[in-house]
Design a protein around this nucleic acid. Structure first.
Lengths: 230, 230
DNA sequence: TGTACATCAGTGAACGCGCGTTCACTGATGTAC
DNA sequence: TGTACATCAGTGAACGCGCGTTCACTGATGTAC
């Protein structure tokens, strides 16, 4: 490494390169196949060298997980904030489409977030918790705001007592104020969103069942929104 | 193997045991970690011996995949057919809850069906196609029947032209007769169902966010159904 | 009913490959005086 | 500005483990006459 770079510069570049190759590896071999040795090989460096930059394989996985959560989160935030706050329904739709775009652009990273758990790997709660709740938190916030603005249907089904209790906990955790029914409906939206994206991104639709998946997705989200918005 | 079993009996027992251990392995090590050597080890047999019963690792994975699709399919069929045909909405709810029960009972098998694709493994279309479409096919059939019986809302949003075209193809493929809007709504139901189950089965809800997940699930499905049924 | 032959189950060794992680080490880069 | 020392990057070997798949083989079970 006889270059003009400083140690700090070099360190940053190496770390970035490890993450980049890690993401690539995720796409080709899946999370279970993420391998520090393979990354070292592709960097033209001996396998033990990557331990200068990353404490262990699982730590790299955690880094990639947090990074991915934040990347989708950022993409969604950008899409949402491009639309006026008063247009709640369009904002939520934009959020959904941004999530889908992000997922289809790199299905393996979406799989890391919302696919099968990686066997033998448990995400450390501390680092992962906050970025991991960005999507549901955003949906909750938008729906609560929509409700405050009188945009939500007034005939939402009243949740049962168990659900009501859980929604009370959510109200506390996220500092959001909206009726149980609205919060429960937000989680339904989250589920529909994740389901629709995963079905497509994970290849459940097969090769050529749907010629216009983007339109299908939009119609699925619109239908779900129609049960929420007045 | 100096037992009184015939060759055919023994063969069936061995094959069953391989599948059983395969399922177990799926739960502990994931699909990517499914290993013929490990199965042989647990059977107290040399690794090459399992090749008498299973052509290759990928073939075993295919067997488990088909088996799992059929197991959920059977569970759902049983739940649905326990309810009178005229009670369409309840039938669909029962289908959803049967799917959830099945998934929570063995999340790893649900992950095989609806989780991240297994890197390097492509399910062979021929064997996998039919069992793989049992769930969406059932939902489409129930919704189409409900529509024929006048149980579906008449204010479903009209799909855009691209979606309409895809729905025409589905009508042919599944031999189902219902308006585009009803078919599109069925796929939304499918997405919501898969999303809600996967979020829970894959641990996205965290340790203790929801104390009453069964109730939450039911409320999510009910809300989705309320956008479909009159 | 008994014998000869074909089929099958399971063995053990091998090929060629993968992995995470540790450790003592060389040599270059940075820092303090 | 130059020198002495500390820090860091990367090496190479090793430990101990995993995998799928093939192949020639022994010995038992089944089948046909």
């Amino acid at each position: 490494m006889a270059t003009g770079r400083s140690r700090a510069e070099n360190r940053a570049m190496m770390t970035d390169e490890i993450r980049r190759l890690g993401r690539e590896h995720l796409a080709t071999h899946g999370a279970a196949g993420l391998s520090l040795r393979a990354i070292a090989r592709e960097m033209g460096v001996v396998s033990s060298a990557v331990y200068r930059y990353v404490p262990s394989r699982d730590d790299l996985l955690t880094m990639l997980l947090v990074e991915a959560y934040n990347d989708v989160g950022d993409a969604i935030d950008a899409a949402v904030s491009a639309i006026e706050p008063s247009r709640r329904r369009e904002r939520v739709l934009a959020a959904a489409e941004a999530a889908r775009d992000w997922a289809l652009d790199d299905p393996a990273r979406w799989a890391l977030l919302y696919g099968s758990p990686v066997p033998g790997y448990a995400a450390p709660g501390e680092e992962t918790m906050v970025p991991g709740t960005r999507i549901p938190a955003l949906l909750l916030r938008e729906c609560a705001a929509a409700h405050a603005e009188g945009l939500i249907r007034d005939d939402l089904p009243t949740p049962t007592t168990g659900v009501a209790g859980d929604m009370a906990a959510i109200r506390d955790e996220f500092g959001i104020d909206a009726p149980d029914a609205v919060l429960a409906a937000s989680t339904t939206l989250w589920a529909a969103l994740v389901g629709a994206i995963s079905l497509e991104a994970f290849g459940q639709y097969g090769k050529d069942t749907f010629a216009h998946p983007a339109e299908l997705f939009r119609s699925q989200i619109e239908l779900t929104l129609s049960s929420l918005f007045a």
